[in-house]
Amino acid sequence: MATLTIADAARPRLAKGVRLQSDSVTGKRVLLFPEGIVELNETAHEILSRCDGQMLNEIVHALAEEYDIDPTPLAADVRQTLADLHQRKLIEFT
C-alpha cells in the first residue's frame, strides 16, 4: 500500500459524514462514521480537535507548545495518526 506524504501546509479536516463527539456512557471521545466507531486516545483526540482548517505545521506547533515536547518526533507521530485516519477515509486534506 502506498505511503502517504503529508505536506506541512496540508489542512486536515474531518471527512464528509464523520463526526467527533463524546460517548455519553464512557465520557470518551469517539469518531462516528457509517457503520463504524473509533474510540480515540488522548493524542488522537488532541490532533483531531484541531483539524478545523489549520495547517499541519500549525497543529504540531500548538501541540508542542501546549505539552512542552520536542516538535520533531511529535510531527512524525501526528503525520502517522493522520495517515492512518486518511487511509480509512475519516479525514481529508484541503
Binding site: 500500500m1 502506498a2 502517504l4 486518511h86 487511509q87 480509512r88 477515509k89
Partner: peptide, 9 residues
C-alpha cells in the same frame, strides 16, 4: 482495495 486505498474504502 490496494488500488483505491485512501480514496474509496
Amino acid at each position: 482495495k490496494a488500488r483505491l486505498a485512501g480514496r474509496i474504502d
